[in-house]
Design a protein around this nucleic acid. Structure first.
Lengths: 230, 230
DNA sequence: TTAAAACATTGTTGTATATCAATATTTTAC
DNA sequence: GTAAAATATTGATATACAACAATGTTTTAA
């Protein structure tokens, strides 16, 4: 298991959640007292599909993938970046994770006893409202994903994913992807071979440049067109 | 547009939401004063993909389909039954519907000004907690759906859908489906022709009996096996 | 009551995509 | 620094599925 330390000063933490601003000092202390900061290395599981939800998981630092494990292939639903809660719908919903979350690099995760967060949420509407907003946004994102999978074909899906990384995640036309080819494929809902093949097509057509995991988006408008056409 | 009447007595309404029990009387009155009960006929849209969220939508009576509209085909994500909110993630999230909701039969929908619900939610944690729970359950359901679409093939998906209707919705091995063949296909993420074909297979194999929209599940265990194998 | 429209069914064909296979390249570990 | 393992790439093959087409059946409407 990964290393961990006790949280010392959540209020002053540079990675603290915005939602903490909605809590009174004593409630932040309540969280802090229960909070363990756990360090995970790339590839380590932060939570596992099929297991019980015992803690609220807050990603303080780093990025992780949230994916559904299947028999032969996985489907990455989203990449979660620092200063975001992981899997609020499992905390408020079922009680069993129906997905696995794995570190894409070395990350710090704050683990807080689930009941402490749930109790605070039941008492503090402003705090819960913040959490519900992010939960809703996340649900909307997944709806969009489902749409893409169902309506678009390979080229359109991959184009969308590349634009997503460039514009939403790295906010740069040049970026060093944290995913390997298999993960990029699992995020685009296709086989790894086809992801590689289509990347090669885009490179030959001068739409992107490639150097391992370093991507350069040369013609975002063409990608956008491909994504729109499906 | 559909007929509507003003709400008269939400507290005593047989179709009232459980979440109302978390509100004070004056807050129920607030909702009631803003609430219009709108009657939709089968096929009428209750909300439309791409439009702005102006009201909270509560399905008092009847059942509706929530689906993503694509260029050529639609994907029904879920069937919502009476006494459930419709699309809370749009209320708390984006502000634009990224799906359309259409009546499957004659339905009654309570429309309440979005800000009234949002303001109540910001002030009343217990109330919001109820809403967040149902929102989370709904998100989990959609996650399961995405998994099915991505991992299973036609026969497995249709088997799952038939079991879902039998066991979750109608709670009976005999049921009269509210969906036509096209809608059944759109809920199972396949073409209408293939849905019909596979139904015929299942009928020939004695797994189900069919008479128009009247379904009889003869061998649920076989369906379960097919669903598990994919 | 009949025409028209919507819905349902079955067979055929084409294609997008996964899978298999072989090889190349990079990373890891001792 | 080399072997081994993981990752990436490219080509060939197989197939699940959508799309097309033709016909039958039920519902709607005048």
């Amino acid at each position: 298991m990964a290393k961990f330390v006790k949280a010392k000063n959540c209020s002053a933490c540079p990675y603290r959640s915005y939602s903490l601003s909605k809590l009174k000092e004593k409630d932040v202390d309540l969280i802090q007292n229960s909070c363990l900061i756990v360090m995970f290395k790339r590839g380590e599981n932060i939570c596992k599909q099929g297991t019980e939800v015992t803690h609220a998981l807050y990603l303080a630092k780093g990025s992780v993938k949230l994916y559904i494990e299947g028999k032969n292939k996985n489907l990455i639903l989203k990449i979660i970046n620092e200063r975001k809660y992981i899997g609020l719908q499992s905390l408020f919903g079922g009680g069993i994770y129906n997905y696995t979350v794995t570190a894409l690099e070395d990350v710090q995760v704050c683990m807080i006893n689930a009941n402490i967060i749930l109790d605070l949420a039941k008492k503090n509407a402003e705090y819960l409202f913040e959490l519900t907003k992010t939960l809703s946004d996340s649900t909307n994102f997944v709806y969009k994903k489902i749409f893409d999978i169902n309506q678009k074909q390979l080229r359109g899906r991959l184009a969308d994913v590349l634009l997503y990384f460039s514009e939403e995640i790295y906010k740069n036309s040049i970026f060093e992807l944290k995913l390997n080819r298999r993960e990029l494929a699992e995020f685009s809902a296709m086989s790894m071979e086809n992801a590689v093949r289509i990347l090669a097509e885009y490179r030959k057509d001068g739409i992107i440049e490639l150097d391992g995991r370093k991507f350069t988006i040369k013609q975002p408008d063409i990608l956008r067109k491909i994504g729109e056409l499906g």
